[in-house]
Design a protein around this nucleic acid. Structure first.
Lengths: 353, 353
DNA sequence: TAGATAGTCTGGATCGATACAGAATCGCAT
DNA sequence: ATGCGATTCTGTATCGATCCAGACTATCTA
């Protein structure tokens, strides 16, 4: 009897008060006299009681005080992606204002479904998950407030994320304003998304192309290349042929769907003996740290990942509070830098091909 | 009645089975006939029941399946420190093997104590927390399995972390072996640790100095400088005076307690017109990515942060399983690179000063 | 001195699920 | 038909804390 885990009852009995008084001693000091409180706490520590059990309290209160973040793939992977870490940073920041804790839930693995189902949370934030990941279905079934960041887009679920197509269109307009007429787009496959819905890269490609075409560009003047993966070497080897062509058969502007790829293109341009931006304008997407430091500094699209994380957290908290929410508009910002410039004068004006 | 949140009971009544059978339908499919199971699940979805409540289950089972990580300062800060992210990465990796989730608990703020107290976890990992942080006391009082990473060191609590003094001593021996006789140490203040116990930087300084003195070096031949913060610019401005002295009054080897500082020293050496390592040997600590990429590549001490995270996770899991554990030995490894070399020949052999 | 008013404290009901032991059912060989 | 084991299902007790509504004391006011 002495060696059983002490509970409120144990303490109450030992202190000669009711269970509720012990509870109040911990959670509502104003509800009992300081003398009683002191005595209760003293007895508690004497019998080895270490305070109210959080799980039991959560059950009764019907809230956990934590928000779950479901992350792409196996959780460890997330930490190798600086973008995701930044988003996480933002979420954390948004939650800690409200005193909520954050539960990391890995998706994509074997038991990911089960983990989502068993997570003790008041809300879930789905972060860059493939739409067909079983974790998504599990999350929806939980009937808990939901927010998505990036992918997936779910009906009736507020989503935080940039309008990739619109942002890419702004790049297109920037290049058109500079007088460019022949374009290339460098994209890549999304490593860990086997979803059927268009990837964010595809959204960028289409947004870019559609804006050009809408402005009267001949579709045949837009070449689309796909790198093997989102890395500088892949980009470099992938565009070298394109850049080695004679000037008349070569695009004067290239849009890469990520800064990583764009940096690879800069290297390839050097290989091909082209000076950027005089002979080739290059634009990227993401505005990673390296973009501002490259030579020449990269024109790109900035989108505030930290802010997106914060926004997601706030959406979750407001839903928990029972308020109705709408997804905020995340602004993207074209950042013109030295890698784009006026198109070189064409020998003969006129359409391409 | 129809619009109340459905529970196991609701479903059981609607399906005409017992509560336990519904529970089994979700958790132990082998305990009931497929037909019954199907019917139960069908009824469940009809009445809008979304599966067993994780909190209630945890209360009954007396385990949460999650491990808490208490992080230094306000949680958001943690994500700006690449070292911490790496440790987190390791912890995550260790936990996800066992299918455990990870709860991030911010320490250092207002309600940090309360968050630690209310965290629904089976174990806590204290990660780089100041010993006098109230969160530490709260964690100890919870009587839950504990592991610490780095600071603090708690009695009877397994700690993961490197032996900073021993590692620094290995740097000292390396420099002694190269024939150096006059040394400088560049340290800095620990930004967010107002604890009274020696910081890990202090441990490194003392370990380095003690090893030198034990080998017969005159204490007056060891100069200790303190940079304003752990950044390259601070280091650079802080050592420039030292490096500008005439050769006879200048140390031939410098040990910086972090790679960041060491990289700043390399810059300062360039400013002062010194070539490293011919005129000055420089050693750092941590083996961050930039250390191998610097010119010359930095001699430093590698300690596997990812591995430390994994080890901490495993210690936590094993304690939860009821096994007794002892803290593992984390090995540090001196990584000699190009920034250290034999001491320049002295004009006159003899003591310094 | 009676009545109002804070300030303390209490007991039972409740949150939702799971463990356990035993009861009912079924199939199959004798 | 009977016995026996395997399978499937049920009822009760339990996890530990909090809510609720009211009761009991002092203290203060009229």
């Amino acid at each position: 009897m002495a060696h059983e885990r002490p509970t409120l009852d144990t303490v109450a009995a030992a202190a000669g008060v009711s269970r509720m008084t012990v509870s109040n001693a911990y959670n509502r000091p104003d509800q009992l006299s300081p003398a009683t409180r002191l005595r209760v706490l003293e007895v508690a520590s004497r019998v080895g009681y270490s305070g109210p059990d959080p799980t039991a309290a959560s059950l009764r209160l019907r809230r956990t005080g934590t928000v779950g973040v479901v992350l792409t793939e196996r959780l460890p992977y997330a930490f190798t992606d600086p973008g995701l870490v930044t988003i996480l940073h933002g979420i954390t920041s948004g939650l800690s204002d409200a005193g909520s804790a954050l539960l990391l839930v890995p998706a994509g693995g074997e038991g990911s479904e089960s983990l989502v189902r068993h997570a003790m949370v008041d809300a879930l934030i789905l972060c860059a998950i493939a739409a067909d990941d079983p974790a998504v279905a599990a999350a929806v079934e939980r009937q808990v407030p939901l927010v998505t960041v990036g992918k997936p887009r779910l009906p009736k679920v507020p989503a935080v994320g940039v309008d990739n197509a619109a942002a890419a269109a702004s790049v297109a307009r920037h290049l058109l304003d500079l007088g460019h007429q022949r374009f290339a787009v460098l994209t890549t496959v999304t490593g860990h998304q086997r979803t059927s819905s268009p990837s964010l890269f595809q959204e960028r490609v289409h947004g870019f192309r559609d804006a050009l075409v809408a402005a009267g560009t001949d579709p045949s003047a837009i070449e689309i290349l796909t790198a093997a993966d989102n890395s500088r070497p892949s980009a470099r080897t992938d565009v070298i042929e394109l850049l080695s062509r004679p000037r008349a058969r070569r695009p004067s502007a290239l849009f890469a769907v990520t800064d990583i790829l764009a940096l690879g293109v800069l290297e390839a341009a050097t290989d091909a003996g082209l000076t950027v931006p005089r002979e080739l304008s290059v634009a990227g997407f993401d505005d990673i740290d390296a973009a501002a430091a490259s030579r020449p500094p990269l024109t790109t699209v900035a989108h505030d990942l930290f802010g997106q994380g914060r926004a997601a957290a706030r959406l979750a908290l407001r839903q928990i509070a029972g308020e109705s929410v709408r997804a905020p508009r995340i602004v993207t910002q074209l950042v013109p830098r030295g890698s784009t410039a006026r198109a070189p004068r064409r020998r003969r004006p006129g359409g391409a091909a």
